[in-house]
Amino acid sequence: MYPAPRKTRLAVWKFASCDGCQLSLLDCEDALLELAEVLEFAYFPEALSRPVRGRYALSLVEGSISTPKDAERIRAVRRRSDHLVTLGACATAGGIQALRNFAAAGEFVAAVYAHPQYIATLEHSSAISAHVPVDFELRGCPVNKLQLLEVISAFLRGRRPAIPAYSLCIECKSRAHTCVLVATRQACLGPVTQAGCGAICPGCHRGCYGCFGPQETPNTTALSDALAALGVSRAALQRLYRTFNADAPAFRRESERHGE
């Protein structure tokens, strides 16, 4: 008899975030216990006590880096991980909390703290890739749990995840939704946003708000021109690009072209 092969060790790490992306892992209800057959959940403080120390084959990282301590911690996580995958907009682009990156230095801190000396915080909220090498970035605010399962399966089998980088429009058309931009003249970021959510916003008669971040090579200038022609103000255009992926380079650059 051979001993059972050691299970692949998985770790789930949290930085500044809402917990929604790691919750998506627990939301894989049907697959969760099956995953536990092939994976060892070695470190996942939200779901289990008593972490297993040592090296991890795959680290899933949620959240952005916004404190000096977290900037050190992510380097330690990288050293102990064979593969590191970021989950969601915070880990991939700094998240909604990266809006502080656009404020004047110290403005947010001054607005919020009574006793800033109690807390160490960085002026910026940044993506994991700004601190350590990342093997794959899974988009979304939150991530799509089916894409998350695909990423985990891909790493278990040593292949690249099959996650499309094309725009939301492809997904929207394949679902035969009426184009909200053309038919109802609503602002929609679909033409420049990466697919993956299932085009749920156009499916609910509203414009995409870009929670999966910019697609590969987005033509944001053309979209902004089209939106301006619909009467979207410069201030509204800037806000449109500055939400959950505000610090993703393509959205940041485009947002800087607009505003009051």
Partner: peptide
């Protein structure tokens, strides 16, 4: 780590 929601809501629609 705090994420300053009350600060970042200012100025939004």
């Amino acid at each position: 780590p705090p994420r300053f929601f009350e600060a970042l809501l200012r100025g939004r629609d």
